[in-house]
């Protein structure tokens, strides 16, 4: 069972000073699965995702990708690993000095060593996939939030990641723009992309997640199939949280 997992993290611990943000979190995900991280802010969801690709260095813990343990002390291994683990941020983090097309191209050229023409073609294809080929030459300052997030998804996809980590990809968006980003993500699910996603989009999660992981205070409180989690969660805290966000965000998606 464990051998089938494409990504496995074990016992991740992280403290900022005296504040223990992650108190030993483990999870594993199989190919094509979507796991949703839920929980109140400050639960450690964001830190966990950043620890998984070492943008934040965990104090303790190990990561396996396709069965082989990452030795992160080896710089080369770390850079190669990050290429295979795509990351989507809450506030998009597009490169401000590059147009949409160049934002996607730069990783292909610099990291993957693709020839400029090949990179351009691939980047254009990815933009098409997220429905933004008309905006290829627009700069981040000229794009809406939803468009920026779709470019950032295209940028991550261009690297052919094996797993994608999405850190509240719709939280910074106007309600009207959330739909277009969720549509792109839904498409990824349909195409079998493996993803770990922190989100409060309850309808989306209920419909598409293979598993909901509920975190609080740096630990996993409860996890299980989405249907079970929303209808009869074991922990009182999970139930209360799910009821609250259902009330806030409604059932729609």
């Amino acid at each position: 069972m464990a051998d089938e997992s494409i990504l496995k993290v074990e016992n991740i611990r992280k403290a900022f000073g005296k504040r223990h943000v992650l108190k030993g979190v483990s999870l594993s995900i199989r190919k094509g699965e979507l796991k949703v991280l839920m929980g109140p802010s400050g639960a450690g969801k964001s830190t966990l995702l950043q620890c998984i690709n070492f943008l934040v260095t965990p104090d303790e813990g190990e990561v396996w990708l396709e069965g082989s343990r990452l030795n992160r002390a080896r710089k080369h291994d770390l850079y190669a690993y990050r290429q295979q683990v795509g990351m989507i941020f809450q506030d998009f983090n597009l490169f401000d000095h590059l147009c949409a097309l160049d934002n996607i191209e730069i990783g292909l050229v610099r990291v993957k060593g693709l020839h400029k023409d090949a990179a351009r073609e691939r980047a254009m294809g990815e933009l098409e996939r997220v429905g933004l080929s008309d905006h290829a030459h627009h700069y981040p300052a000229q794009l809406s939030g939803g468009q920026k997030q779709r470019v950032s998804i295209a940028r991550a996809l261009a690297m052919d990641p094996k797993v994608m980590l999405l850190d509240e990809p719709t939280s910074a968006l106007d309600p009207e723009l959330i739909g277009e980003v969720l549509a792109v993500i839904r498409n990824l699910v349909a195409n079998g992309m493996t993803m770990i996603m922190a989100t409060h989009q309850i309808g989306f999660s209920r419909a598409l997640a293979d598993e909901i992981i509920f975190m609080e205070d740096g630990q996993i409180v409860e996890q299980g199939p989405s249907v079970k989690m929303f209808s009869d969660a074991v922990s009182e805290r999970t139930r209360a949280f799910c009821a609250k966000i259902s009330e806030l965000y409604g059932e729609t998606f």
Binding site: Q50, R82, Q83, M87, F89, F92, M159
Partner: peptide, 14 residues
């Protein structure tokens, strides 16, 4: 913005 640096590292930039 620091986020852009994280984004670059996440893509596998040295």
């Amino acid at each position: 913005k620091r986020g852009q640096l994280s984004a670059a590292l996440a893509l596998g930039f040295t």
